[in-house]
Amino acid sequence: PKDEAKKKVKEAIKRGDEETAKRIAKKYNLDWDDAKREADEER
């Protein structure tokens, strides 16, 4: 599900692992900028 994928993307971003985050986002066709902004807001 997309929500689960987005959570994984945000967790990867918070760990500083943007490569993984981008790969997950691409795989699930998520909006990378959107997920990154959300992760930054939660930090």
Rank of each mutant, 00 (worst) to 15 (best):
A21L: 01
K10F: 14
I13Q: 01
K14N: 10
K10P: 01
R37M: 08
E18D: 08
Y28M: 02
D34W: 08
Y28P: 03
E18L: 15
R43P: 10
E41N: 12
E18A: 05
E19S: 08
D3E: 13
A21E: 00
T20N: 06
D17E: 05
K6E: 04
K8V: 08
E38S: 06
E38V: 05
A12R: 02
I24K: 01
V9M: 13
I13D: 00
A25E: 00
A21M: 00
E19A: 12
P1N: 15
R37I: 06
V9L: 14
A39S: 08
K27A: 13
I24E: 02
R43W: 13
D33F: 08
I24G: 00
E11I: 04
D3R: 08
R23V: 09
K2P: 10
K6P: 02
R23F: 09
R37F: 07
D40A: 11
A5G: 08
R43N: 12
A35Q: 05
K8A: 14
P1K: 13
D40N: 10
D31R: 02
K6D: 02
N29Y: 04
K2N: 12
E42S: 08
A21C: 02
K26S: 10
D40K: 06
Y28R: 02
A5R: 03
K2H: 12
R43F: 13
D31K: 03
R15K: 08
N29S: 09
V9I: 14
A39L: 10
K36Y: 09
A35K: 02
K26N: 07
V9D: 00
E41V: 08
I24T: 02
W32G: 01
R15N: 11
R43T: 12
D31P: 06
E19R: 10
K22W: 08
T20I: 08
K27C: 15
E11N: 07
I13T: 01
D34S: 10
K14R: 13
E42Y: 07
K7R: 14
N29A: 09
D17K: 02
A5W: 14
A25W: 01
E42M: 07
E19V: 11
G16V: 02
K10G: 04
R37S: 07
E18N: 08
E4Q: 11
G16F: 03
R23P: 00
E41P: 05
Y28A: 09
D33W: 09
K36R: 09
T20P: 01
P1L: 14
E42W: 07
R43M: 15
R23M: 13
E38C: 09
K7G: 04
A25I: 03
G16A: 03
A21I: 00
A39Y: 12
A35W: 05
Y28S: 05
E11V: 04
K14A: 12
D40Y: 13
K6N: 04
K22L: 10
R15S: 07
K8S: 08
I24Q: 01
V9G: 00
K22Y: 08
K27T: 08
E4R: 12
E18T: 11
A5V: 07
